[in-house]
Amino acid sequence: MIPDLTLELILYSTALGLVSIGLAGLVLSRHSFRRVLALVIAEAGANLMLVLAGYRWDAVAPIVTTLGKQPQMVDPVPQAMVLTAIVIGVGIQALAVSILIRIHQRYHTLDRNEMAELMDAEIAATAGTARDVSQESPLGERPIPPITGSAVQARGGRS
Protein backbone atom coordinates (compact mmCIF):
# COMPACT_ATOMS: atom_id res chain seq x y z
CA MET A 1 0.00 0.00 0.00
CA ILE A 2 1.33 3.42 -0.89
CA PRO A 3 1.47 5.40 2.35
CA ASP A 4 0.70 8.75 0.75
CA LEU A 5 -2.50 7.54 -0.89
CA THR A 6 -4.99 8.41 1.80
CA LEU A 7 -8.75 8.47 1.42
CA GLU A 8 -8.95 12.23 1.71
CA LEU A 9 -6.34 12.75 -1.00
CA ILE A 10 -8.32 10.58 -3.40
CA LEU A 11 -11.56 12.33 -2.59
CA TYR A 12 -10.09 15.82 -2.85
CA SER A 13 -8.54 15.06 -6.22
CA THR A 14 -11.84 13.61 -7.42
CA ALA A 15 -13.70 16.75 -6.34
CA LEU A 16 -11.15 19.06 -7.95
CA GLY A 17 -11.20 16.99 -11.13
CA LEU A 18 -14.99 17.13 -11.34
CA VAL A 19 -15.06 20.90 -10.82
CA SER A 20 -12.36 21.51 -13.41
CA ILE A 21 -13.94 19.18 -15.97
CA GLY A 22 -17.27 20.91 -15.45
CA LEU A 23 -15.80 24.39 -15.82
CA ALA A 24 -13.86 23.35 -18.92
CA GLY A 25 -17.02 21.98 -20.49
CA LEU A 26 -18.90 25.13 -19.55
CA VAL A 27 -16.33 27.27 -21.33
CA LEU A 28 -15.41 25.09 -24.29
CA SER A 29 -18.66 23.53 -25.43
CA ARG A 30 -20.67 25.10 -28.20
CA HIS A 31 -23.88 23.21 -27.80
CA SER A 32 -25.99 24.72 -25.04
CA PHE A 33 -27.41 21.46 -23.69
CA ARG A 34 -23.91 20.14 -23.15
CA ARG A 35 -23.13 23.25 -21.15
CA VAL A 36 -26.06 22.45 -18.86
CA LEU A 37 -24.59 18.97 -18.38
CA ALA A 38 -21.20 20.49 -17.59
CA LEU A 39 -22.90 22.66 -14.97
CA VAL A 40 -24.36 19.50 -13.39
CA ILE A 41 -20.89 17.95 -13.16
CA ALA A 42 -19.31 21.05 -11.63
CA GLU A 43 -22.10 21.15 -9.06
CA ALA A 44 -21.46 17.50 -8.14
CA GLY A 45 -17.79 18.26 -7.55
CA ALA A 46 -18.62 21.26 -5.38
CA ASN A 47 -20.99 19.15 -3.25
CA LEU A 48 -18.33 16.49 -2.80
CA MET A 49 -15.80 19.06 -1.65
CA LEU A 50 -18.25 20.58 0.84
CA VAL A 51 -19.02 17.25 2.48
CA LEU A 52 -15.32 16.45 2.49
CA ALA A 53 -14.65 19.62 4.51
CA GLY A 54 -16.40 18.11 7.52
CA TYR A 55 -15.03 14.59 7.15
CA ARG A 56 -12.83 12.86 9.74
CA TRP A 57 -11.58 9.38 9.18
CA ASP A 58 -12.03 8.25 12.80
CA ALA A 59 -15.58 9.51 13.30
CA VAL A 60 -19.03 7.96 12.93
CA ALA A 61 -22.12 9.23 11.15
CA PRO A 62 -23.79 12.16 12.97
CA ILE A 63 -26.74 10.20 14.32
CA VAL A 64 -27.40 10.22 18.08
CA THR A 65 -28.12 6.65 19.11
CA THR A 66 -27.27 6.53 22.83
CA LEU A 67 -27.68 8.98 25.65
CA GLY A 68 -24.59 9.85 27.62
CA LYS A 69 -21.13 9.81 26.18
CA GLN A 70 -21.11 10.18 22.38
CA PRO A 71 -18.42 8.89 20.08
CA GLN A 72 -16.67 11.30 17.70
CA MET A 73 -18.94 12.42 14.88
CA VAL A 74 -18.26 13.98 11.52
CA ASP A 75 -19.37 17.61 11.19
CA PRO A 76 -23.10 17.64 10.37
CA VAL A 77 -23.27 21.32 9.33
CA PRO A 78 -21.73 20.92 5.81
CA GLN A 79 -23.91 17.87 5.29
CA ALA A 80 -27.04 19.90 5.98
CA MET A 81 -25.87 22.61 3.60
CA VAL A 82 -25.10 20.07 0.87
CA LEU A 83 -28.57 18.62 1.35
CA THR A 84 -29.96 22.06 0.51
CA ALA A 85 -27.50 22.56 -2.36
CA ILE A 86 -28.54 19.33 -4.08
CA VAL A 87 -32.18 20.38 -4.18
CA ILE A 88 -31.32 23.90 -5.32
CA GLY A 89 -29.10 22.41 -8.03
CA VAL A 90 -31.99 20.42 -9.46
CA GLY A 91 -34.07 23.62 -9.48
CA ILE A 92 -31.33 25.41 -11.40
CA GLN A 93 -31.19 22.56 -13.92
CA ALA A 94 -34.93 22.75 -14.46
CA LEU A 95 -34.73 26.51 -14.97
CA ALA A 96 -31.84 26.23 -17.44
CA VAL A 97 -33.60 23.50 -19.38
CA SER A 98 -36.82 25.51 -19.58
CA ILE A 99 -34.90 28.52 -20.89
CA LEU A 100 -33.25 26.25 -23.47
CA ILE A 101 -36.65 24.98 -24.59
CA ARG A 102 -37.92 28.54 -25.08
CA ILE A 103 -34.77 29.44 -27.05
CA HIS A 104 -35.23 26.37 -29.22
CA GLN A 105 -38.86 27.26 -29.89
CA ARG A 106 -37.94 30.81 -30.90
CA TYR A 107 -34.65 30.47 -32.77
CA HIS A 108 -34.58 26.76 -33.74
CA THR A 109 -30.91 26.46 -32.86
CA LEU A 110 -28.91 25.67 -29.77
CA ASP A 111 -25.46 26.59 -31.02
CA ARG A 112 -23.97 29.30 -28.84
CA ASN A 113 -22.67 31.57 -31.61
CA GLU A 114 -25.76 31.25 -33.79
CA MET A 115 -27.95 32.04 -30.79
CA ALA A 116 -25.93 35.19 -30.08
CA GLU A 117 -26.13 36.31 -33.71
CA LEU A 118 -29.89 35.82 -33.89
CA MET A 119 -30.44 37.58 -30.58
CA ASP A 120 -28.29 40.53 -31.68
CA ALA A 121 -30.21 40.82 -34.92
CA GLU A 122 -33.56 40.69 -33.13
CA ILE A 123 -32.53 43.28 -30.54
CA ALA A 124 -31.29 45.63 -33.25
CA ALA A 125 -34.48 45.17 -35.27
CA THR A 126 -36.65 45.86 -32.25
CA ALA A 127 -34.70 48.93 -31.21
CA GLY A 128 -34.60 50.22 -34.79
CA THR A 129 -30.86 50.72 -34.83
CA ALA A 130 -28.16 49.35 -37.07
CA ARG A 131 -26.58 46.31 -35.56
CA ASP A 132 -22.86 46.17 -35.14
CA VAL A 133 -21.26 43.73 -37.50
CA SER A 134 -18.71 42.24 -35.17
CA GLN A 135 -18.15 42.53 -31.48
CA GLU A 136 -14.44 42.13 -32.00
CA SER A 137 -14.08 45.08 -34.36
CA PRO A 138 -12.04 48.03 -33.05
CA LEU A 139 -13.86 51.19 -32.01
CA GLY A 140 -11.59 53.80 -33.60
CA GLU A 141 -9.58 54.04 -36.75
CA ARG A 142 -8.01 50.89 -38.05
CA PRO A 143 -4.24 50.96 -37.97
CA ILE A 144 -4.13 48.26 -40.61
CA PRO A 145 -6.33 47.94 -43.70
CA PRO A 146 -9.55 45.98 -43.06
CA ILE A 147 -9.78 42.35 -44.03
CA THR A 148 -11.83 41.66 -47.11
CA GLY A 149 -14.96 39.56 -46.99
CA SER A 150 -13.50 36.55 -48.76
CA ALA A 151 -10.57 36.43 -46.34
CA VAL A 152 -12.99 36.53 -43.40
CA GLN A 153 -14.96 33.65 -44.84
CA ALA A 154 -11.77 31.71 -45.44
CA ARG A 155 -10.98 31.99 -41.74
CA GLY A 156 -14.34 30.61 -40.78
CA GLY A 157 -16.10 33.86 -39.85
CA ARG A 158 -19.14 35.57 -41.25
CA SER A 159 -18.86 38.48 -43.63
Binding site: I63, I86, G89
Partner: peptide, 26 residues
Protein backbone atom coordinates in the same frame (compact mmCIF):
# COMPACT_ATOMS: atom_id res chain seq x y z
CA UNK B 1 -18.32 6.27 2.42
CA UNK B 2 -17.95 9.69 4.05
CA UNK B 3 -20.55 8.90 6.75
CA UNK B 4 -23.29 11.09 5.34
CA UNK B 5 -26.15 8.63 4.73
CA UNK B 6 -28.89 11.27 4.59
CA UNK B 7 -27.06 13.23 1.92
CA UNK B 8 -26.48 9.98 0.03
CA UNK B 9 -30.20 9.19 0.06
CA UNK B 10 -31.08 12.65 -1.22
CA UNK B 11 -28.38 12.58 -3.89
CA UNK B 12 -29.52 9.18 -5.17
CA UNK B 13 -33.18 10.16 -5.27
CA UNK B 14 -32.97 13.77 -6.41
CA UNK B 15 -29.58 14.08 -8.09
CA UNK B 16 -29.60 10.80 -9.96
CA UNK B 17 -33.32 10.19 -10.33
CA UNK B 18 -35.17 13.47 -10.74
CA UNK B 19 -32.35 15.33 -12.45
CA UNK B 20 -31.84 12.58 -15.04
CA UNK B 21 -35.58 12.52 -15.65
CA UNK B 22 -35.64 16.28 -16.23
CA UNK B 23 -32.64 16.14 -18.55
CA UNK B 24 -34.01 13.17 -20.52
CA UNK B 25 -37.35 14.92 -20.97
CA UNK B 26 -35.46 17.99 -22.13
Amino acid sequence: LMRAPDVAMTEAAVGAGLSSLILALA
